[in-house]
Design a protein around this nucleic acid. Structure first.
Length: 865
RNA sequence: GCCCGGAUGGUGGAAUUGGUAGACACACGGGACUUAAAAUCCCGAGGACCCGGAAGGGUCCGUGCCGGUUCGAGUCCGGCUCCGGGCACCA
């Protein structure tokens, strides 16, 4: 009786069992080694997408595999539940963000469960719950005590129409993403985390992240952007002060012919006061400041500036040089002032050309002579210092160090290190986030909320207009508060925290999700941390992954965490993409809605015009090439969805969606299903000791293949994550097993071996397609759950071949293949090779010069000519 | 501009330390089953050319391009082209 593979039934059955038996609950345990595998938790947007399916399938393979290898596996899941989309839903549709978020979580959780992912759901957290975000506040207060959280004025993107701060990502070509108004820069009081205190450690420890992709490490290194140079003070003659610049090229200081300062530099407006330049400077500064950061980057190239009317003295040349305000100097980096060396810096060169400022060569290349008048671009490479006083004649690299030392001796400045990394601004003028636990009192100033008053709960009764400041300020019950110190009426901070704060330590919370004495139980975190394998999209390469590293180190310094780095190994999975089709009239079309045919060309269903086959692009609404995981699971089942995403490409590469590929995965599972059911009776009684069973001929080869497959699949999963080749190997084994079962008349030994093969296939498939594997395991007559079956081992001696295939080459080209007994001597192989008809035909009368013998593989006969 | 990746059949991809290039799968073609179709099963297949009546057999070429190292290169080295991603006035 043939039974059809019906994924729906068996998947529901097993999901129910895992749920009811709490199969993946885990606790600290002595004995077995711990293993913490974590996938980046999702934002509860409403529905899971293919990226989630891929991410979580990869993680689940690792988790299930490690469990079968006897590890004590922590595999948790939660929700990154604060954020803007919830607030937009409130503004647009009048649903409260909390309701919207909780509904999404509920729905997505059922979707995840339908994927058969082996999570310990008892550890689930949602960052929007007070039980979670109170610890954000707790951490904030600890940071505040240590000076790691502080408040300062800073420049932010501001939309004058929406009256709100915008993140850099929400500024699209200089305009507000929502109302299209021109975004401007505005000074605001904001809270910051002093991540720059950890710049050196964050940079240095990158060396230790051998389990991270090179690419991510490089991106973080660039982001931190360490520069070694010097600070030099240029005295302002008329005043009793000086202008400090930061430079990495102190070796060129004798060539500094002017100074450029940022428009935001405090001296910009001050220096010009009372000079003829005043009006021009005010005008210029205003213009630059109106331009947002992103816009300034966009029209890079056009260097502009204006003379301030003031001069300062270059201490090395004792010359007075002019001070300019320049549009390309950033206040946020260095000191907001740079010494300009037109001969040896391209920007300064362009600026000097435009405003007729002198170019003075102080570094000469070794192979030619630079003349300032003939230069068309700056010379930025190494060379010999010239016209540099006592330093002339030195190699500039040597001069760099000498000048840094000299600066300090003379008291003109000092060697200095700067980072591109800036402190992390965490204030957000939004509702749906963690309230910053700070109170402003007219008498006492900034007062932290006492720990025993945490959490500062988000009020529920606020209006969502989408305009104005944070809605929290409009909630009287929230904003008005008695000062904890003097009891006078005071005001709460109405900003909330950046949602990246939530995700900077959630992996620690998972080690003890219900702990209520601190953000996490240090002992449990001590047991589980670090995360052994972290898996997620590369889009978080800098932000989240850097913040999480910072938090781990800061929490370590607070005595909570015991590790220096949170994620020992990182896998960044590629994105899921699909081909796109586009009608010039009706936009992007989904493949299944196309008219026409592959052969005669696809047509637009509305206007019947031929459609343009677009590129393969990341699945997105705008490209109309999204495949909904739910449809996929309904049509083929979760196992097929998992199998395809794991088989179609290695995890770190992009995955091109293919409907036929999915079909193929389903066919494989159906074939396996049918095979087991058709042969179950014949195999029922058969039993063999796979480790030592003696068989001959074809069966011996099958036995070898079983062992070889175990080895291959184990090595492919463990550390390498080549799930595609692991699955391919299992498919090969299945092809071989069904071949033997079909062709040979099964002897008792044969049946036993086929059964061993099938069982191996089922066990090896368990991490990939857990439902069907569990069901077949049960069908094969086993009572114990497949999730607890130990991963099979292979016997090295079973891999031994009694015959070897040796490739025979002549001058590096394959000319023959000979089969020899495994224990044959090299000499015999050489004799056999030379005796081979084809080989000898190629050798002819030519003299053999040498023989290159690769044991067990190959013999290359090198002849003259 | 700088920094990372990548390029292999019609397609996705294999080849783990330099040793039979194209595993596995998709698509395709042929066949079996069927009144028919679907499903299923079996077989074929990198390209060009050659020998043979046929089954078969053979030669050369082939991993983006040019060159190098080596007995031997998809893999290593040098130089390019194209594609993808990140950063982008960082002094």
């Amino acid at each position: 009786m043939e039974e059809r593979y019906r994924p729906k039934d068996i998947e529901e059955k097993w999901q129910k069992i895992w749920d009811e038996e709490n199969s993946f609950r885990v606790a600290e345990a002595a004995g077995n080694p711990k293993y913490y595998v974590l996938e980046m938790f999702p934002y509860p947007s409403g529905r899971i997408h293919m990226g989630h399916v891929r991410n979580y399938s990869i993680g689940d393979v690792v988790a299930r595999y490690k469990r079968m290898r006897g590890h004590n596996v922590l595999h948790p899941m939660g929700w990154d539940a604060f954020g803007l989309p919830a607030e937009n839903a409130a503004i647009e549709r009048g649903i409260h963000p909390e309701k919207w978020t909780q509904e999404n979580i509920r729905y997505m959780k059922t979707q995840l469960k339908r994927m058969g992912l082996s999570y310990d759901w008892e550890r689930e957290v949602a960052t929007c719950e007070a039980e979670y975000y109170r610890w954000n506040q707790w951490i904030f207060l600890r940071f505040f005590e240590r000076g790691l959280a502080y408040k300062k004025r800073s420049s932010v993107n501001w939309c004058p129409s929406c009256e709100t701060v915008l993140a850099n990502e929400q500024v699209i070509e200089g305009a507000c993403w929502r109302c299209d108004a021109a975004v401007m820069q505005k000074e605001l009081e904001q809270w910051f985390f002093r991540i720059t205190d950890y710049a050196e450690e964050l940079l240095g420890d990158l060396e230790r992240l051998g389990g991270w992709p090179e690419k991510v490490v490089t991106m973080q290194r660039n982001w931190i952007g360490k520069s070694i140079g010097a600070e030099i003070r240029f005295p302002l003659p008329e005043r009793n002060e000086s202008l400090t610049v930061f430079t990495t090229r102190q070796d060129t200081v004798f060539g500094a012919t002017f100074i450029s300062i940022a428009a935001e530099h405090p001296l910009a407006l001050e220096l010009c006061r009372g000079t003829q330049q005043e009006a021009a400077v005010i005008d210029f500064v205003e213009r630059v400041r109106r331009t947002s950061q992103s816009q300034r980057g966009a029209d890079e190239g056009e260097k502009e500036g204006v003379f301030t009317g003031a001069y300062c003295r270059n201490p090395f040349t004792a010359e007075n040089i002019p001070i300019y305000v320049a549009n390309f100097v950033l206040m946020e980096y260095g000191t907001g002032a740079v010494m300009a060396v037109p001969a040896h810096d391209q920007r300064d060169f362009e600026f000097a050309c435009k405003y007729g400022l002198p170019v003075r060569v102080v570094i000469q290349p070794r192979d030619r002579v630079l003349l300032a008048e003939e230069m068309t671009e700056a010379y930025v490479d190494d060379g010999v210092m010239v016209d540099s006083g006592q330093f002339s004649g030195l190699a500039n690299s040597e001069g760099k160090e000498k000048i840094a030392t000299y600066l300090e001796e003379k008291g003109w400045g000092k060697g200095a290190v700067r980072y591109r990394l800036r402190d992390w601004g965490v204030s957000r003028q939004r509702y749906w986030g963690t309230p910053i636990p700070i109170i402003y009192c007219d008498n006492c100033g900034i007062v932290p909320v006492p720990y025993d008053q945490l959490p500062v709960a988000l009020p529920k009764d606020v209006p969502f207009t989408g305009k104005g400041r944070s809605p929290l300020g409009d909630s009287k019950s929230f904003a008005q508060v008695a000062c904890p110190r003097c009891q006078q009426s005071a005001r709460r901070e109405s900003d909330t925290m950046d949602t990246f704060v939530d995700s900077s330590w959630y992996f620690l919370r998972f080690t003890s999700s219900r702990y209520d004495g601190a953000p996490f139980d240090p002992e449990k975190a001590g047991y589980w941390m670090a995360v052994d394998q972290y898996i997620g999209g590369v889009e978080h390469a800098v932000l989240h992954l850097l913040y999480a590293r910072f938090f781990t180190k800061a929490l370590r310094d607070l005595g909570l965490a015991k590790v220096d780095e949170p994620f020992a190994n990182l896998l960044t999975q590629g994105m899921v993409s699909k081909e796109t089709y586009r009608c010039s009239e009706h936009g992007w079309l989904f493949p299944s809605e196309l008219a026409g045919s592959e052969k005669d060309g696809w047509k637009c269903p509305q206007c019947n015009r031929p459609v343009e086959k677009g590129r393969v692009e990341k699945m997105s609404k705008s490209k109309n090439n999204i495949v909904d995981p739910e449809d996929l699971v309904n049509a083929y089942g979760a196992d097929t969805a998992r199998l395809f995403t794991l088989f179609a490409a290695p995890p770190e590469k992009d995955l091109e969606w293919s409907d036929q590929g999915v079909e193929g995965g389903f066919r494989f599972l159906s074939r396996l299903w049918r095979f087991v059911h058709q042969h179950s009776e014949a195999l029922a009684g058969a039993r063999i000791d796979l480790q030592s069973g003696e068989t001959g001929g074809e069966l011996r080869e099958l036995r070898r293949m079983i062992h070889r497959t175990i080895k291959k699949v184990t090595e492919d999963i463990d550390g390498r994550f080549h799930f595609n080749t692991a699955i391919a190997a299992i498919m090969e084994l299945f092809n071989a097993v069904s071949g033997v079962a079909q062709h040979a008349r099964l002897t008792r030994d044969g049946a036993a071996l086929v059964k061993a093969g099938v069982e191996t296939i089922v066990i090896l498939l368990a991490p990939f397609v857990p439902h069907i594997a569990s069901e077949l395991w049960e069908h094969l007559g086993y009572q114990d759950r497949l999730d607890r079956v130990p991963w099979p081992s292979y016997a090295p001696e079973a891999l031994e071949q009694e015959e070897l295939l040796i490739v025979v080459q002549v001058n590096g080209k394959v000319r023959g293949k000979i089969t020899v007994p495994a224990d044959v001597t090299q000499e015999r192989i050489e004799r056999a090779a030379l005796a081979d008809e084809r080989v000898s035909a190629f050798l002819g009368e030519k003299k053999i010069q040498r023989l290159v013998h690769v044991p067990r593989r190959l013999l290359n006969i090198v002849v003259e000519g």
